[in-house]
Design a protein around this nucleic acid. Sequence first.
DNA 1: TTTAAATACTTCACCAACTGAACTATTTGG
DNA 2: CCAAATAGTTCAGTTGGTGAAGTATTTAAA
Lengths: 160, 160
Amino acid sequence: MTSDTSENWDLYTPEVQAMMGVFALHWQLEQRLNEIGLEGQLGRPECQLLLILAEPRRMGELARLTLKAPSAVTAAAATLEGLGLVCRVRDTRDGRAWLLELTAAGRERRDELVASASELFYETSGLSPAEAKILAGLAQKIHTKAVQSGAVGPCEGDKT
Amino acid sequence: MTSDTSENWDLYTPEVQAMMGVFALHWQLEQRLNEIGLEGQLGRPECQLLLILAEPRRMGELARLTLKAPSAVTAAAATLEGLGLVCRVRDTRDGRAWLLELTAAGRERRDELVASASELFYETSGLSPAEAKILAGLAQKIHTKAVQSGAVGPCEGDKT
DNA sequence: TTTAAATACTTCACCAACTGAACTATTTGG
DNA sequence: CCAAATAGTTCAGTTGGTGAAGTATTTAAA
C-alpha cells in the first residue's frame, strides 16, 4: 500500500497542515451534509442555521455567528420559514429585530440533523470520540475568536 | 462582560461544537486569505493550490486532495499559469497527465503565502503554537480520512 | 498491428451561495 | 416631532463550483 493517500506531511508547517485538515473536513462535511439535507429541501446554509438554532436567536446574531452578511441569513431564514421549520417573532425588547425560533417540526428536524451530522462527523473525520472532544475544545476557542475578529459591529457587545 | 460572544456551548454536542469551529475557522481563513491573495491576483482556489504545491503534483492528485472536481483544478491552474507561478509539465511516466510545478516566482509567492497564512492562522484561531500542533495532528488524520472517503476513484491507489 | 476501453485533463453551460448597496421599519434621543 | 442610528430585506452582480461532452494518450486484447 504505497497509496498516495499517505502524504508527506513533513512538507508542510503545522499551521498549513491544520489549515488543510480544516479545509478538507469542512468541504467534505458540507458536501455530505447537503446530501442529507436535500431530502428535506435543505441547502447548506439552511443546515448550518438549523444547527445553530438550539435556542432562539436574532438574525443579526446569526449573521455574526456564521460570519456571513445579514442578507445571506435572510435568504436561508426565508427558506426555513417556508418549510415551516422556523418562525419569525418580533423581539419584544426591540421591534426592529426578529427572533428566529424553531417550530415543533423544526426541533424534530434539527434533532435528526444533529444525529446525522454527528455520525457524518465521525465517518468523515475518522476521529475517536475522545479526539472529537479535544477538537471541540479547540473549536470553542477558535469559534469565539473567529467571530470576534470577524464582527466589527461594535454595538452588540454590551447591550442593556 | 456579558457579551454574546460568550456562548452557551452546553447547548451543543461536542461534534456540533467541532463542526461550528471548523466552519468558522474555514470561513474566516478563506475570507482573509483571499484579501492577502488578491494583492497578487489570487483567488481562494488559487491560494489553496499554491499551499498544497510544496512539491510537483498531478492535476488529478490536486483534485483529490482538495476534494474538488478536476475541472475546478483546471481553472485554478490556468490562472496560476497565467501569472507565471506554475508551469505544466508532462508526466514522463504518463503522457496524459500534467504535473503542476512551481516556477521560481511561484516558490517565492508560496513562501510569502505560507508566512501570511501562518500569521493569519494564529490571529484568526487564537490558538497557541502548542494547540496548533495538536490541531495539526488531528488534521492529518482528518485530511487523510476525508480524502479517502471523498475519493471513490479506485485506480489511483496503486499505480505502476 | 489494430482496435477498443479506460484514463487524464479541458471546455462549457449552468447553478448555488455570498456580498454590497439601496430601501423599509423601528427605535432612540434631542 | 424630527433626525440619526439600527435591524432586517431586496436585488443585482460576482465567484466558485459541478457535470457532461470532448480530446489526447495509454493499456490491453485480438
